[in-house]
Design a protein around this nucleic acid. Structure first.
Lengths: 117, 117
DNA sequence: TCCATATTTCAATAATCCTTGAAATGTTGA
DNA sequence: TCAACATTTCAAGGATTATTGAAATATGGA
């Protein structure tokens, strides 16, 4: 991920409804959620949720696929992971010791990373 | 870090000049950089850099301290680490397997986390 | 084909954010 | 104290972004 893409990602995530959408889709997993279901759960109008979904799609944070009458959206884990990497690599570029605490987060995903010093 | 703080952080990082400032300060380390030095390096007017520094400060991403005539800014590594954690915990909340790749980033900071599966 | 469903698009308005340059604040050394 | 330096504050304007509701598009079933 380059700086331009990170900028777009941060911009996309800097709006409450969009951040909530991404969090919902991350939890929803590969099955994703239909636009209507997202709108209903967040109590936002269909046209408004559509606007924000388009923004998230432009930033590459989500993907979409038509499924019968619905359009199902899914989180793009690669891009989200790339954003994490971008933040941490920047950190390491200068002073590795100060960003070590952030590395502990890895413990929640990868058992081998547990109990880092 | 709660959702509100993450939202503020994303907003602060979603502007090119501000993202560049944060990256510079992260690399600069605990010594930080004076406002003037930042402005000069990024070729931005003093008043404009001051505007963005204030935004970053409001979001908690940087700190400041007067040093003689200059005001020296430093990155807030805790908050940046908290942002990484926020992104990854969200990820883990649903489907740990999809965010494992992001955990590999930890290898750049903590030797113990190297070679994760 | 026709209707209901699901979603997007569009135009208009409102709200927020960024930039600019001039003036104000605080600091140091002569 | 005064002048030069470093930075911030302020107001105005321009630019971008968000919200709304109505109309358009696409799909599936009677």
């Amino acid at each position: 991920m380059d700086e331009g893409q990170a900028l777009a990602s941060f911009g996309a995530l800097s709006q409450e409804t969009r951040l909530q959408i991404v969090r919902m889709l991350v939890v929803a997993g590969p099955d994703g959620m239909a636009a209507g279901a997202i709108a209903e759960k967040l109590e936002v109008s269909p046209s408004n949720v559509s606007f924000h979904l388009k923004e998230l799609d432009r930033a590459g944070l989500i993907g979409q696929q038509r499924e019968s009458r619905s359009i199902v959206y899914t989180a793009n884990y690669d891009v989200l992971g790339g954003l994490v990497r971008f933040l941490m690599e920047d950190c390491c570029a200068g002073h590795p010791e100060v960003c070590a605490p952030a590395a502990q987060v890895a413990a929640c995903c990868v058992p081998a990373a547990r109990n880092v010093p």
